[in-house]
Simulated assay, not measured.
Amino acid sequence: MSTKKVWFVTGASKGLGLSLVKRLLNEGYKVAATSRTVESLKKEVGSSENFLPLEVNVVDEKSVNDGITKTLAVFGSIDVVVNNAGYGQLGTLEELSDKESRENFDANIFGLLNVIRNVMPHFRNKRSGQFINISSIAGFEGQFPGWGIYNATKFAVAGLSEALAAETKSMGITTTVVYPGYFKTNFLLKGSLRFAEKPIADYKEARELDRAHIEDIPGNQPGDPEKAALAFIKLAESQNPPLHFFMGSDSYGMANNKMEALKNELSANEALSKSTDY
């Protein structure tokens, strides 16, 4: 009898999600994968008895619930959930409209919450399960001019993941928040990255970073999506998966730099910090 876990992966028609789905199927896992169009999944992955392509809009809770219900009907269980759906929104905090900002939160945060909320009854019932929530190094190190709203959504992924891990620990459910660096996927291409509708020229640092993400970075990312897929599988098969996982040498380096800066600020302001106690 197979002991292979059943995976539920959102945002699976491209990028890290697509690489993961293909690797999982190659290794004999059962995979339910979501995208906004089921045709895109079928085109990229093909067909297999172990593959369930699902047309799901993560912002629509009924759509999410329908996808999870169908997965349970077909595979009988869900063991690992990878919350990968979302997109990058560029634009400074002044430039982005309320609509642009809220739409990014809807996709990156409230969509993820819809999945968690609808999977949890199944996980609670069987007293096991694993969430792998995809943040970004921009969800730990926020000093990227013009990425403030996206940063905020990814910091939120980290914060709610920490709470989720604490809330479900006694149920045998684990959570890992993953902070990828730059991987050679189509994340920086049209469809996964949106720019401010009304840019303001005064923001020279943001415009330079915009230019870099269009001209310099695509094709030169250090991360290998195939190796990322293997890392996800190792996380899922670990007896004690980490709460925080920084994926890629660039992510690892930036995290270390941020922690060193925090340590320095703590030390420099220790007396002032403690001066507020009774």
Rank of each mutant, 00 (worst) to 15 (best):
K5E: 11
K5Q: 14
V6T: 03
F8L: 07
V9W: 00
G11F: 03
A12F: 00
A12D: 06
S13N: 07
K14G: 12
K14M: 15
G17C: 01
G17N: 05
S19L: 05
L25E: 00
N26I: 09
G28M: 07
G28E: 07
G28K: 10
Y29C: 09
K30L: 11
A32I: 05
T34Q: 04
S35E: 09
S35W: 05
T37C: 10
V38G: 00
E39C: 09
L41S: 02
E44S: 11
V45P: 02
V45L: 09
V45N: 07
V45F: 00
G46M: 10
S48A: 14
S48Q: 13
S48G: 11
S48F: 10
E49Q: 15
V56T: 11
V58T: 05
V59A: 14
V59L: 12
V59N: 14
D60V: 09
D60L: 08
K62W: 08
N65L: 15
G67P: 03
A73L: 12
F75R: 02
G76N: 07
S77M: 11
D79C: 09
V80H: 03
V82F: 03
N83P: 11
N83F: 04
Y87K: 04
Q89F: 05
Q89M: 12
L90I: 08
T92S: 13
E94C: 11
E94R: 10
L96V: 07
K99W: 12
E100P: 06
S101E: 13
S101H: 09
R102N: 13
E103V: 06
E103P: 04
E103W: 07
D106V: 02
D106P: 06
A107M: 14
A107K: 06
G111K: 04
L112Y: 03
L113V: 10
I116E: 01
R117T: 15
R117S: 13
R117A: 15
M120E: 10
H122Y: 04
H122E: 13
S128D: 13
G129R: 03
Q130E: 14
Q130F: 03
F131A: 00
F131Y: 05
I132E: 01
